[in-house]
């Protein structure tokens, strides 16, 4: 064995000193099949409405109670910032594709409802950061995934090759 390889082998732990960002597991988990909740098989307005109601009931009591200036979600949970920006880029990119290809505009309302739910979740996390933080973060990730899934289903229906070509947008490859 040459002496450089030997030196690296002897000091391996010092070379392996970097840690992945905190949000990395969330990014990976968001791409894995759901372990408990069944996947949405098709775009179903009633299902979305039911999900919306359930989520809203859970956090409704905080609606309207927030003062104008409070700590942001990212102050409380900084490692989530990167995950959010990752999802947000994907959603923005997909929204542009759907806007071009959707045959009607009902999706806008669906996405808007989910965005409102997201605002409530965000507010609840800020209001009460310690209680069930993990559950709220999971609900936020589910919310992002449902939005992406809704838009994916619209795009699948359009069966448009153009979309497939534009899919790896620059938005998905942050510099």
């Amino acid at each position: 064995m040459d002496n450089l390889k030997q030196f690296i082998s002897d000091h391996r732990s010092e070379f392996d000193d970097r840690r992945p960002p905190e949000g990395m597991w969330m990014r990976i988990e968001s791409k894995l099949p759901r372990s408990a909740a069944p996947k949405i098989r098709f775009l179903n307005r009633q299902l979305i409405a039911a999900a919306t109601v359930l989520l809203l009931v859970g956090v409704a009591f905080v609606a309207g109670q927030l003062s104008a200036k409070k700590a942001s979600v990212h102050d409380i949970y900084p490692e989530f910032a990167e995950t959010e920006s990752y999802f947000q880029r994907k959603i923005d990119s997909k929204k542009r594709a759907v806007a071009v290809h959707a045959t009607d505009s009902t999706w806008v309302d669906d996405i808007h409802q989910l965005e409102m739910v997201m605002n409530e979740l965000r507010a609840e996390l800020v209001r009460n950061p310690e209680a069930s933080k993990g559950d709220i973060i999971q609900a936020m990730i589910d919310n992002y995934n449902i939005r992406l899934e809704i838009m994916d289903r619209i795009l699948e229906k359009t069966n448009d090759k153009t979309y497939l070509n534009t899919k790896p947008s620059n938005d998905d490859n942050p510099e």
């Binding site: 070379f15 392996d16 000193d17 840690r19 992945p20 990395m24 597991w25």
Partner: peptide, 11 residues
Amino acid sequence: LYTRYDGAMYN
């Protein structure tokens, strides 16, 4: 499993 290997694999 992820936390067992994440550091080594990230490096």
